Amino acid sequence: MHRRAVLGTLAAGCGTLFAGCSGSRVDGEVVANETPLAFSHEYATQATYSGTRVVVEVTAENDGHEPITPKESVPNVVCTFLDATGETLHQSGLKLTQFIGVGETITLEFTLAVDVDDVTRYELRSEWLEA
């Protein structure tokens, strides 16, 4: 009897973890890039105890001929989460102030924790900002 209770608890826990994970597909693209960073990106839908969230993981490689240093200008990478009508649900940016050598990569993460059921796409932009 104890074994069934444990299995039932495990099944309920797995159901909670995967709840919302089979939602609609979220498409993403880099819509603007003024920097020498080359991007690859993917998203995941994650269930948490407080709800579901969408996480976009971005890998950025310095594909230029010089290192990126925080002396004058630095890349600012922005992720905008959009609904089916193109309305912005959330937008956040990361100002990259660390040294990034030629050929080096960094990993960035953007999270949407509200309006998760409404998100259908995300857009990435990278532009130069004063350091």
Rank of each mutant, 00 (worst) to 15 (best):
M1F: 13
T48D: 07
A47F: 06
E42V: 04
T105L: 02
V55F: 03
G103S: 09
C79K: 03
Y122F: 15
T52K: 11
I106G: 10
A19I: 04
H65N: 14
A5Q: 11
T80V: 15
Q46M: 13
T9K: 06
C21N: 12
I68Y: 00
N62D: 10
S73P: 00
T107A: 13
V116M: 11
T80M: 08
R125D: 14
A113Y: 05
T97G: 12
S73R: 09
L108W: 03
I68K: 00
R3E: 14
D118E: 15
F39T: 02
A113Q: 09
Q98G: 13
V56E: 08
P67N: 05
P70A: 11
V56R: 00
I106S: 06
L112Q: 04
A131I: 09
G51R: 01
I100H: 00
L124E: 03
A44Y: 09
G15S: 15
L37V: 01
V116H: 03
F110Y: 09
F18A: 14
H65Q: 13
K95V: 14
A5C: 08
L94K: 03
R53D: 12
A60Q: 01
S22Q: 10
T59G: 04
G103H: 03
E123G: 08
V74G: 08
T52Q: 10
L94M: 12
R25K: 11
L17P: 00
G93I: 01
G64R: 01
V56T: 10
E66S: 08
T9Q: 11
D118P: 03
G20D: 06
A11W: 03
I68V: 11
R4L: 15
T97W: 07
V55W: 01
V77Y: 00
V6R: 07
E109W: 00
A12Q: 10
R53N: 11
L17D: 05
F18W: 10
G101I: 04
P70T: 06
V74K: 01
D83T: 06
H90M: 04
E87R: 05
T59Y: 02
T107V: 07
S126V: 02
L96A: 04
R25F: 08
C14Y: 08
T85P: 06
H90T: 04
C21V: 13
D115F: 13
S22D: 12
E61H: 00
F81W: 12
H41M: 07
T16I: 13
E109K: 04
V119W: 02
Y122I: 05
I68A: 01
L10Y: 09
